[in-house]
Design a binder for these strands. Structure first.
Length: 444
RNA sequence: GCAGCAGUAGCUCAGUUGGUUAGAGCACUAGUUUGUGGAACUAGGGGUCGGUGGUUCGAAUCCACCCUGCUGUACCA
């Protein structure tokens, strides 16, 4: 006999997906409002593209040749494969190509949106998350790259971070290009592995990176990662070239000049900034927080950057012959929210309603009138949304962190003066309905 | 993906040579108080011990596989 179990629906979430509660959402809303303010001041256009695209629109020109179709959520329509977008850059490229003749050149757009990645989630990384992107399309001017850096720093500061709490690290792909020429590295596989290894300097330090450039590296759990297999002499050259102070490439030189004109100095040039993507062609940058970020158990974790970007002059050409050099930035909003929430001084006000207690259903009309008056005067208020004794109602108000309850029983109705009980102090006062809203605003 | 560690009530966790009906604190519900929250006391509900299969007279405990979580690493458009 098969034991028919009474199967209940799962209450668990799919791997890598999370519920987000008010505290986090309010911080997120706050950051978004700041982003929008800055974007408007910088003259960017707001754009929204759909969550789904034809897989081929966002997939065919994917820069990562190793796994052209892996990592996205897809399903088949009647005719074609659709995919949930995995970033906002690919839809932008598609949008630009589709509307190339109509849009202004250069084209500046910003976008906030959820993206999905079908990958194994890691610490602070989910399969559904919110990204913020700003891009310039159709300009080669480094003024654009400079503005992106300055703009993101303005956003972070308007979110309450000080200059000492973040830094923009900048570099250029041209540095590594020149380096590869010098050491005569032509194998594209080795080049890629080398770039990826160099990208990890901030986490692994030069010792770890040199192991990855050579035969490989064992991490602290004992797992082994294969390296780029460069010989030790080449590795020496790479290290000395990237570590020593040397003249900057022309594009960086110019970028710094613009920074100076803007009087912007919260950056570091760092030739070890690489970024994994193959499609970058020039200036690249990364936004790093300089304070420790902890997990729910209070352990400091490897947090990495909250965003970055750079110049990709050839990407949009994948859609055809468009003259669309571009540069852009992506910020992982959820990561930024996560980090900001840990700063003690960063608190977002959560407004909780004052609760009108119910004594007698027969007086409901009086309660409703009172509620109406208070709402009209801008007070967050609710009639207790349930049944139960006064004690239960008080417990509810306490539980939701309500600032006060209003007791409006027979006595109060007769006298026209409800009792306002401040739930933080326990103090009760009888106040005329007219003056009640002002009194409540004082204690919120 | 790879590696290490872990999974017992909503949460934090006890529970060894395998042995009745699996425990505590917090939280929850009701009452002590029929117009008063945070404290105290009393009572109560809540678990197929992550899942499946195996060993055994008997499994939360031993074995195998799987799932999930954490940390590192890889990848990250």
């Amino acid at each position: 006999m098969n034991k028919q179990k009474n199967k209940k629906p799962l209450k668990e979430l799919p791997l890598g997906f999370v519920d987000r509660t008010e505290k986090e959402l309010l911080v997120r809303d706050f950051i978004i409002s700041k982003i929008k303010e800055v974007m408007i001041r910088y003259g960017f256009q707001y754009l929204e593209t759909p969550s789904f695209e034809y897989s081929e629109s966002i997939g065919k020109f994917l820069p990562d040749k190793e796994r052209p179709d892996a990592g996205v959520f897809s399903f088949k329509d009647d005719k074609k494969w659709l995919s949930l977008r995995y970033d906002l850059t690919a839809p932008l490229a598609r949008y630009v190509a589709k509307n190339f003749l109509e849009i202004p050149k250069p084209f500046k757009r910003y976008q906030l949106g959820t993206v999905w990645r079908n990958e194994k989630p890691g610490p602070g990384r989910f399969r559904e998350f919110l990204q913020f992107d700003a891009d310039f399309v159709g300009t080669k001017s480094l003024q654009a790259d400079a503005e992106l850096c300055i703009m993101i720093s303005e956003i972070l500061e308007s979110c309450g971070l000080s200059k000492s709490e973040y830094v923009i690290k900048i570099s250029s792909r041209k540095i590594t290009e020149e380096l590869f020429k010098k050491i005569n590295l032509n194998d594209s596989e080795q080049k890629l592995t080398t770039l990826r290894a160099l990208d990890k300097i901030d986490r692994l330090g030069w010792d770890g990176v040199k192991q990855l450039l050579g035969s490989g590296r064992k991490d602290k759990s004992g797992d082994f990662t294969k390296g780029a297999d460069l010989n030790s002499k080449t590795i020496e050259i790479i290290e000395s070239e990237l570590r020593k102070e040397k003249p900057l490439t022309e594009d960086l030189e110019y970028l710094l000049k613009i920074f100076k004109d803007y009087n912007f100095n919260n950056y570091e040039t760092d030739p070890s900034i690489i970024r994994g993507l193959e499609y970058y062609t020039g200036i690249i940058f990364e936004v790093n927080l300089k304070f420790d970020v902890k997990n729910s158990r209070g352990q400091v974790i490897q947090f990495g950057s909250i965003g970055g970007g750079g110049r990709y002059d050839n990407l949009i050409n994948n859609f055809g012959n468009y003259d669309a050099p571009a540069t852009g930035i992506s910020i992982g909003l959820d990561r930024l929210v996560y980090a900001l929430m840990q700063k003690k001084e960063f608190k977002v006000k959560q407004t909780k309603p004052v609760v009108i207690c119910i004594f007698d259903k027969g007086s409901m009309k009086e309660y409703i009138n009172l509620q109406k008056v208070l709402r009209k005067n801008g007070v967050s208020v609710e009639i207790y949304p349930g049944d139960g004794k006064l004690k239960k109602q008080m417990e509810y108000a306490n539980k939701i962190n309500s600032p006060a309850v209003i007791l409006f029983g027979d006595n109060e109705i007769k006298s026209g003066k409800p009792t306002l009980r401040n739930l933080r102090t326990g103090k009760e006062t009888k106040i005329e309905i007219k003056k009640l809203a002002d009194e409540i605003k004082k204690i919120i």
